[in-house]
Design a protein around this nucleic acid. Structure first.
Lengths: 255, 255
DNA sequence: AACCGTATTCTTGGATACAGAATATGAGAT
DNA sequence: ATCTCATATTCTGTATCCAAGAATACGGTT
């Protein structure tokens, strides 16, 4: 019907690469969601997806369940599925949880990471610096940033921890504050602090550096998105002073 | 065929209570796994489940996907599904992640919890004490313990955080150390410390008390399961001294 | 004109059918 | 007796079909 009005909304699935169709469909939908083709709150019809991709509804159902588990879509009471809407609070909470989890990963990584991995981490950050200097697209920046953080959590060698953090990242590729002017530069410096702490094999320092980094990103994101600067009870609580890694008393954030 | 050899392996589904069959099937399987009827590593056949419960394979598939997302089952490369095997390291990691997440929840709960909720928490712990005193079955103890911890994470009012913690609890109802002699009593005391910290609305103290509690449970579990007391690199790292909430220098665990 | 009830259509959940892949079993050869 | 290869069975993934429920739209009534 109104099908050719949306000629190729979804990236066609790559035949044979993935083992089962459900995974391929999920990948396609994931890309569509993360790229913004499917907007927040938009409804996803099983039938239209299956028609678009030329598969039956069955693998589409499985794929939607998978995406639901990943937190990318929301299942309404009657089985209707919409692209997940991230409220302001959701984003705050994402930062909140990421902070404790990634700082824990950093702490562990300080002991587990090989020297080679630290070298790679540093080189990724160097690429990041170059890309920022040449004003590359924020997509490139995001990819490098993503890789930096992924290297750390993978190096911690704790699969559940890694899985949780990954799922947190999955939802928020949209809400990254790297497009804020100057944010990339500040990120680079904070990344360097993290690398330095890892080099010296100091778990506490690594943890602290990561907390500092994520707090900073969160604060800048909040400021840029025009949220009332201080209150929002959630924030005062969530990212307030008494966070793990801060050293006891003089715990006011350093930046 | 050999069906009546396993007359009622799975708890029959309750008709009409759940909205969709997949949920009902998932519930049944979950109960079977947690109760130990389905042993660790045992394979789960879609067909046998559907025959047992009198439904088609379709909702069984959905249920299995859901259980996979919850971490209760493992999906082998070719779609085969087995009951997840928790290795020793998995359990350690579970404690590790639970520690940072639940202590964060406790920290937040210290500000968010209503007085009524704290009262309820205290009364649950009182029931726990009574049950332990009367040597109730460890099932009852586990339920009360579960309820205590759930109350806290729900009171923090951060859905993602709550969801992550819940999924961690889901996997480990088996590995709870409450059957260790004296463990229940020690738990009660630690619970009281948590309640006290929440009463005084002290986030730091609440966080510290929770860290202490989970660390203690982890240590006792490890000791009882006959693991080499000190090394296992993972543990030394994971639950070692420099954990969040400990106060800077004198960070050796208190117990 | 507004509100309520009914009917139609749309969409999802569940069942059944089919094809392909993997594993197990058995026979034959060395 | 053991190893190998071929065959048969089993189980999963995909497609198609059917039924039930929800939302919307239309018409009647006050």
């Amino acid at each position: 019907m109104a099908e050719d009005a949306v000629p190729t909304q979804l990236r066609q699935i790559r035949p044979g690469v993935l083992v089962n169709l459900a995974d391929a469909v999920a990948e396609s939908l994931r890309a569509a969601i993360l790229s913004g083709q499917l907007k927040s709150g938009e409804r996803i019809l099983q039938e239209s997806v299956s028609a678009d991709l030329g598969v039956s509804r069955q693998p589409v159902r499985d794929a939607l369940h998978r995406l639901h588990a990943e937190g990318l879509v929301t299942e309404l009471p009657n089985g209707r599925v919409i692209v997940r809407e991230y409220t302001h609070e959701d984003i705050c909470e994402n930062y909140l949880v990421r902070r404790v989890l990634e700082s824990e990963a950093a702490r562990i990584a300080a002991v587990m990471m090989t020297d080679a991995e630290i070298d790679e981490l540093q080189s990724v950050n160097q690429s990041f610096r170059n890309a920022a200097h040449e004003h590359d697209s924020s997509t490139v920046l995001n990819q490098l940033n993503d890789r930096f953080h992924r290297l750390i959590r993978v190096a911690a060698r704790h699969p559940m921890l890694e899985g949780f953090i990954s799922s947190l990242w999955a939802g928020l590729t949209i809400a990254t504050p790297l497009s804020i002017p100057g944010r990339a530069e500040r990120s680079i410096v904070q990344h360097e602090e993290i690398v330095a702490a890892l080099r010296t094999r100091d778990p506490q320092a690594a943890q602290r550096a990561m907390v500092n980094h994520i707090d900073s990103a969160c604060r800048e994101f909040l400021r840029s998105s025009g949220v009332p600067p201080s209150p929002v009870l959630g924030m005062t609580i969530n990212l307030g002073p008494g966070l793990p890694g801060s050293s006891g008393k003089g715990h006011a954030a350093r930046t």
